[in-house]
């Protein structure tokens, strides 16, 4: 690190921001845990009633929800893959919005003037804010993971593979942090009149739709689904490959590319933020 950077100062920002965001984080945690618990505890009912009906649904419709014919609710993990797809998209939206707003809101509300007046560099501000969003997201992910495992103990009926569930959280977590980094990157250079969270959410949904289209037109332009981080790290894709019944050739190369892009966005965002004009 350069002499212009002292982690202690980033930590000061982290502590203050964490405290300020604490209520919001708790509300989000309650929402994610509540949704996850509600859906997962319904597994036995869904298994009985919906299993056969879902199996009759067209493949294309199932793919919208990140499912395939193979992964309809015949076990707890497959059901989790379906439910987690919803939670995953919510968390991705949360990540990109929070990432983008962490820097944007300071400028919009002019509270950045406070940080400009204290002895802290822009890099320290960037790192402190990045850390707090990452930790907040990690809290939500951990809440969701713990809920999934606990619900599995209650209603899993011996069809739970916790290692596979943890793999889903670990791999999809990279995409979550990728979207946080994207949010920071956008906020570091977009002008004040363009809301970076809207730009980030647009990118998220466009890439999501591209992934879905790639699945629909698998034979012709299948490669386009690789442009969608959500699709690459969807729970069903990871689960399918884990169970050896995947239709997507799941491998770590796309995840490595997402990771590299994530670091690119983090570093690029930091460089651009240091040069940004605070008007």
């Amino acid at each position: 690190m350069s002499k212009n950077f002292e982690f202690k100062r980033s930590l000061n920002i982290f502590k203050a921001e964490f405290k300020m965001r604490f209520k919001g984080t708790i509300i989000w945690l309650a929402l994610i845990v509540g949704m996850m618990a509600m859906y997962m505890l319904m597994y036995p009912v869904i298994d009985d009633i919906m299993g056969e009906k879902l199996a009759l649904m067209p493949e294309e419709l199932l793919q919208i929800f990140g499912m395939s014919k193979h992964s309809v609710v015949d076990n707890y993990n497959s059901y989790f893959a379906m439910i987690y797809q919803i939670i995953f998209i919510i968390l991705c939206c949360y990540g990109v919005s929070m990432g983008a707003n962490a820097l944007y809101d300071e400028e919009k509300t002019k509270s950045i003037e406070f940080l400009n007046s204290v002895q802290v560099s822009r890099l320290e501000i960037y790192v402190g804010k990045f850390l707090v969003i990452m930790v907040n997201l990690l809290i939500l992910v951990m809440g969701s993971l713990i809920t999934t495992i606990l619900c599995g103990l209650v209603v899993g009926e011996g069809t739970v593979d916790n290692m596979a569930i943890i793999s889903v959280y670990k791999i999809s977590g990279i995409t979550l942090f990728f979207f946080v980094a994207l949010g920071f990157f956008l906020a570091s250079f977009l002008k004040k009149d363009i809301k970076p969270s809207m730009a980030g959410l647009s990118i998220l949904f466009v890439t999501y739709i591209i992934g879905y289209l790639g699945e629909l037109v698998a034979d012709k332009i299948e490669f386009i689904k690789m442009l969608s981080p959500i699709h690459i790290t969807s729970a069903s894709a990871i689960m399918d490959s884990t169970m050896g019944i995947g239709t997507l050739d799941y491998n770590l190369l796309p995840v490595a590319i997402i990771t590299l892009l994530m670091f690119g966005f983090i570093v690029g965002g930091a460089v651009l933020y240091r040069k940004r004009d605070f008007l």
Binding site: A16, M20, T109, K110, S111, E113, F114, N116, S117
Partner: peptide
Amino acid sequence: YLPGEVEYY
């Protein structure tokens, strides 16, 4: 530095 616009958290 005292900014012209004093907006805080």
